[in-house]
């Protein structure tokens, strides 16, 4: 009987955590007139994302270039 009750409580725990995980992090980001710091940081991160994509592309190009000079690492 106790096990059954524990499972219900813990499932509620999981539900709450999953909910918070979505509500805190997700959903669309709008540039409002006044946004609290959460959304501001997201706008910064969108800028970081653009930089990330270009680093990834760089990385791919480097991988393809097997003849690249090993001395470039020293």
């Amino acid at each position: 009987m106790t096990d059954y009750i524990n499972t219900i409580e813990q499932s509620k725990d999981i539900t709450v955590l999953e909910l918070l995980d979505r509500a805190l992090n997700k959903g669309i980001v709008l540039a409002g007139d006044v946004v609290i710091s959460v959304a501001d940081i997201d706008l910064v991160y969108i800028g970081v994302k653009l930089m990330l994509s270009s680093i990834e592309t760089m990385e791919k190009l480097k991988c393809n270039n097997i003849e690249a000079d090993a001395k470039s690492f020293t």
């Binding site: 499932s11 509620k12 999981i14 999953e18 909910l19």
Partner: peptide
Amino acid sequence: DNKVLVNSGSN
């Protein structure tokens, strides 16, 4: 609502 549909491990 309880949203956990499957949990094959420990909570």
